[in-house]
């Protein structure tokens, strides 16, 4: 068989070329079945294999968290990472949508998440006779203050499940937030794009008690020569 047919053969049936977005000569085949409108592309293009796309689509179609749980998560996420003057909030960064997906992708999060949310409502019912999301801001913060810090001396044993749950949702919120464009901008991460690395900038080095010694620096690439084809003498000395 032709080599270029090989991947397509593994694409049999489940996924049509169009589902993958812009296809290339490698496996474009206009005769493949078009995607059915009921199952739109799961996640856009991120280099998935057919079985991975199928899995993404299946997970996206599933429902685990209910509307009340998602509403509670949204309130908690924004308490954990509220908006600042410079950056949006966790819900601005669609963290609840991320958590909704991730507990289906990683089912071991499901029980701690569902149970923790229920614990939170029981606790707010006990204190204020209402669910967490119907509490006032001050009431919500009163509970959060009791579960947002470790209790190493076990002064509040009744809060232990809440502390554990808050740690989980804080971790998922931070991870979900900083893996978005908004998070990159807040963090100051400017990579993942073509560029030319030429060492730590001087102004950064000025803050640190380390330096690049001249001998080492002299061995490193002179970036003005990067497009010149390498040639060596017979001893391995680079000539270009």
């Amino acid at each position: 068989m032709k080599r270029r047919d090989s991947l397509r053969t593994l694409l049999v049936g489940t996924v049509a070329g169009a589902t993958l977005g812009s296809t290339t000569s490698c496996n474009t085949d206009p005769t493949t079945t078009p995607p059915t409108p009921e199952t739109p592309p799961a996640t856009g293009l991120y280099g998935r294999l057919p079985k991975e796309i199928e899995r993404d689509q299946r997970i996206m179609a599933e429902i685990f968290l209910n509307e009340h749980e998602l509403a509670t998560i949204a309130v908690l996420c924004d308490i954990i990472l509220p908006a600042t003057d410079e950056a949006g909030s966790a819900t601005d960064a669609e963290v609840p949508e991320f958590i909704d997906f991730i507990v289906k992708d990683m089912p071991y999060h499901q029980l701690p998440m569902r149970g923790g949310l229920m614990w939170l409502d029981i606790e707010s019912n006990r204190r204020f006779n209402k669910t967490f999301i119907t509490c006032t801001d001050a009431e919500q913060i009163e509970i959060v203050e009791d579960i947002a810090y470790p209790d190493e001396e076990n002064k509040k044993p009744d809060m232990a499940p809440g502390i554990k749950f808050f740690s989980l949702i804080r971790n998922l919120t931070v991870t979900g937030y900083y893996t978005t464009r908004m998070g990159f901008d807040d963090l100051g991460y400017v990579g993942n794009r073509p560029n030319v690395w030429d060492g730590v900038p001087e102004e950064i080095l000025a803050d640190h008690d380390v330096e690049l010694d001249a001998e080492w620096a002299a061995k490193c690439i002179d970036q003005s020569t990067r497009e010149t084809i390498a040639e060596w003498d017979e001893k391995g000395n680079l000539l270009t």
Binding site: R4, L7, L10, C26, L45, I59, M106
Partner: peptide, 27 residues
């Protein structure tokens, strides 16, 4: 199967974490 690092259909290089719903996790 056949693989070419240039093929945009299978390429993951320069994708952002949010291109993946699990943000690049190992599921």
């Amino acid at each position: 199967p056949y693989f070419d690092p240039k093929d945009p259909v299978t390429m993951t290089q320069l994708k952002n974490p949010w291109d993946s719903p699990r943000r690049g996790a190992s599921s």
